[in-house]
């Protein structure tokens, strides 16, 4: 198991702090957090509500910045990138999966999946082809022409996963990806994530409340009072 830790480092966090000011009060979510995330990991982050799980995911995904400290991705700092550069970095390196899918309701499944490709240099034909492939990978190619409201929650989340992987990012950030799904759909979504991790080598960071969901990950981190406690998955 220790081989996992010696994998190439994907993320390096050094002395990262994050605090919010609420009124006059300053609330520290973490202070001085130092950690690594290796390539190919599948980490489940668990912890009580308000412990900062979403916050850490936001920092890793480059949609929020630390109050102090450094975050490096593949050796390059991302915490000090300007807005535009950070957006480009996200477009190339991160896929997001949200609890409520966040699909564009007026676009079909395949149009939703094509969205991230609009940010890359690519012909329309190539976009369509890659979107079809992504839908195929998550097993929902037959629903390509459906609008989100014509799909079940589990199917919508699959479309969202296809959108997250279509630009071939190294890492997927999932915030409660099964929080809105029944057990059966949840398991099948989690199996898909597992597959993306093992077969395609995607590094996955997944926040969840659900121990059963966390058991699909290779590693569980428990966040409490701004500290991570590691626990190797049994599965």
């Amino acid at each position: 198991m220790t081989e996992d830790l010696r994998q190439d480092t994907l993320y390096q966090l050094d002395h990262v702090s994050k605090s919010y000011t609420r009124g006059k009060e300053r609330v520290d979510i973490f202070t001085d957090l130092t950690m690594q995330i290796g390539r190919g990991e599948f980490i489940a982050i668990m912890g009580p509500s308000g412990s900062g799980k979403t916050t850490i995911l936001n920092l890793l995904g480059g949609i929020d910045r630390p109050s102090a400290g450094e975050i490096a991705f593949k050796g390059q700092r991302i915490d000090n990138l300007g807005q535009g550069k950070l957006a480009t970095w996200r477009a190339h390196n991160v896929g997001f999966i949200f609890q409520f899918y966040n699909l564009m309701p007026t676009l079909t499944a395949i149009e939703n999946v094509e969205l991230p490709l609009l940010l890359l240099k690519m012909s329309g034909k190539e976009r369509r082809r890659r979107a079809e492939t992504a839908l195929d990978i998550v097993g929902i190619a037959d629903r390509a022409g459906h609008k989100p409201r014509q799909l079940s929650g589990g199917q919508q989340q699959r479309v969202a996963i296809a959108r997250a992987i279509v630009a071939d990012p190294a890492v997927l950030m999932c915030d409660e990806p099964t929080g809105d799904l029944d057990r059966e759909s949840a398991n099948s979504v989690l199996e898909t994530l597992q597959l993306l991790n093992t077969e395609l080598g995607k590094t996955i960071v997944m926040v969840t409340h659900d121990p059963a969901a966390a058991s699909f990950a290779k590693k569980e981190l428990h966040l409490d009072k701004g500290r991570f406690v590691e626990r190797e998955a049994l599965a």
């Binding site: 480009t88 609009l118 940010l119």
Partner: peptide, 10 residues
């Protein structure tokens, strides 16, 4: 939706 597009990189 708009925020999601921004997160994607728009």
């Amino acid at each position: 939706e708009i925020a999601t597009l921004r997160a994607i990189g728009f």
